[in-house]
Design a protein around this nucleic acid. Structure first.
Lengths: 336, 336
DNA sequence: CAAATGTGGTTAAGCGCTTTCTCTAATATC
DNA sequence: GATATTAGAGAAAGCGCTTAACCACATTTG
């Protein structure tokens, strides 16, 4: 049924080694036999089995992509770029969603290895290093996107989160806001941590009081954002501005504001982070910190592929600059 | 370096056949040897190579998912569900974006086969049937999601697009709208076609005039929607309501309306389709036709897996009911 | 013109696993 | 107690491919 290299060899009157050589363009083959073999391959609709060739030490030309959730616009945009660049370089991508569950992540890590992927791109918050370390030790190609593990020498492509946080907070401060809240995911995630550190530093630099009540750690979805915003906006310490560390959270803020009858940006300024499609859809359009997602997606794949193809590849961190995109969700503070 | 079945066999003092048996839970193994082998596997961190086992006729436990674009919320939500259900059943998913380019699609189809995936889920508008037909002929497991190819006996999971179009248009008619426009993607795509047919039928049933000027075929993105809506809203035949066949197009309509200073729903009612996350984010929240995405995702995978695992599986079409979700983007027609 | 060199190809081993066939030893049967 | 069963395990072939080692022949070279 299935046509194999033997069928081709037989029909072309050569050995399978010869066929293999024309497939891979290796060794010396006379123009005549090459033609003949190619011809037979064509008529037989022959397609080399990647599984078989992988078994003999060749690449599977497949990479794994581990992210929290493709349904989250930020990651779906990343996934798209990764796939695009992967295709350009001849790699397919195996998509894995973990919801940031460490067990799921660990499971995928070892599963992907079992499946002999050539490398893995990780966009989740890695908490459990055991499997990861093991892979790293045996020099398995791994690259991180949009997160970092500072204590590891590892390939990383991410935005400068500190700078992003700095830009966002500074923007609000420059608009005269004094009570600025920040909503983030999990401080164990480096991206969140850096944004938070920048937030604190800007407050300090501007002589603004740091108030713990204005810091909310939540999760990454809109519902989480809404819940957190509701809490924030109902409190006696109601902020005049919120820096939401993800656009999704910012959307939650919009929903909360609407429910409470607050107008954005008149009653409340909000800055997001990521500049996903959400930022442009929402009304008013969201001021946010843009991550160069396209560039990031392209670069992780490039980095990973170098790790795959080059014998001695030096790990590196690629830290890209964020950009403040001012739209209509932020406005001069008028209160008091 | 890499630990193989031989290492395990040697250390456990048994043959590789025995090890294979305990891995796969086949054949008769004494409790004692099983224990021993499992123990050795554990201490050696042994992980069977799926590539090698695939070569001997076992499954790769990988399925392909071909969609236009994961960055499109509808498909990212589908992708997520497919992956979830796949994981439950022990399958990984290889993500392929085609942008509805037939060549890319064809390329993926044969690439996926080369990679020995166990089956393929297709969510794109298939135009070129040659490769598809070939796969079908050799009984390669394939399932369609959110689209159909009526002339083929094939596994399909989709929403009842006609009913969806019917509900959407009827809703607008019942609100007293007479000039109802429709924006769709490509009439060669069955989903679009059925929605359009329903639109026409509803008009007819209600004695409303069908006006070609109010039908716009565009593409699937927001920009396309905006462009189309601008055209529609600037024309002398300005409609009082628009049925956008995808939420993304509807968002484009919002943007166009905003640009023209038109208020939704007061100046213009709009109904979307899909009930993606976009519908709830947008302001005012979008009245739309909900597709049971979760259910669809689950069911395609189930169907596909049946095709993979059951020798004689009868192809079937699973057609799920859509639901009209009334939010605030539609309103009684007051004009004239 | 014998030896060296180059060209085009074949043979065969091996990748890590599954599975059929076979064999041995223990247990059951009469 | 001899024979029939059965449980447990091993030997070996084979999956489709790559590649190192090898070989036959033609062509150069001094």
């Amino acid at each position: 049924m299935k046509v194999t290299i033997y069928d081709v060899a037989k029909k072309a009157g050569v050995s399978i080694a010869t066929v293999s050589r024309v497939i891979n363009n290796t060794g010396r083959i006379s123009e005549k036999t090459r033609k003949k073999v190619l011809e037979v391959m064509e008529t037989l609709h022959y397609q080399p089995s990647i599984v078989a060739s992988a078994l003999t030490g060749k690449r599977t030309r497949t990479i794994g992509l581990i992210i929290p959730d493709v349904a989250n616009p930020f990651f779906s945009e990343i996934a798209r770029k990764v796939e695009d660049r992967g295709r350009e370089l001849g790699f397919n991508v195996l998509m894995c969603n973990t919801d940031n569950n460490p067990d799921t992540e660990e499971m995928y890590l070892s599963l992907l290895k079992q499946k002999s992927v050539d490398g893995i791109i990780i966009g989740t918050t890695t908490k459990n290093y055991t499997v990861l370390n093991e892979l790293l030790r045996e020099n398995f190609p791994i690259a991180l996107i949009a997160q970092d593990i500072p204590e590891l020498a590892i390939d990383v492509v991410r935005v400068d989160d500190f700078l992003g946080g700095y830009l966002a907070t500074s923007h609000l401060v420059s608009l005269g806001h004094k009570k600025i809240a920040i909503m983030l995911g999990n401080l164990s995630r480096t991206s969140d941590k850096y944004r938070f550190q920048a937030y604190r530093q800007v407050l300090e630099e501007n002589g603004l009081e740091y108030n713990e009540k204005l810091v909310i750690c939540t999760d990454y979805s809109m519902e989480d954002g809404k819940r957190a915003a509701l809490e924030l906006l109902k409190s006696s310490q109601r902020p005049t501005a919120i820096f939401a560390c993800f656009d999704a959270l910012a959307v939650g803020v919009y929903q909360a504001a609407k429910e409470l009858g607050l107008n954005i940006p008149n009653d409340l300024s909000v800055v997001g982070f990521d500049n996903t499609i959400l930022a442009t859809i929402v009304d008013p359009p969201l001021t946010t910190i843009a991550q160069p997602i396209d560039e990031m997606g392209r670069q992780v794949v490039d980095l990973l592929v170098r790790g795959i193809e080059e014998e001695k590849h030096t790990k590196q961190r690629v830290i890209l600059p964020p950009e403040l995109i001012i739209r209509n969700s932020t406005k001069e503070n008028v209160s008091k």
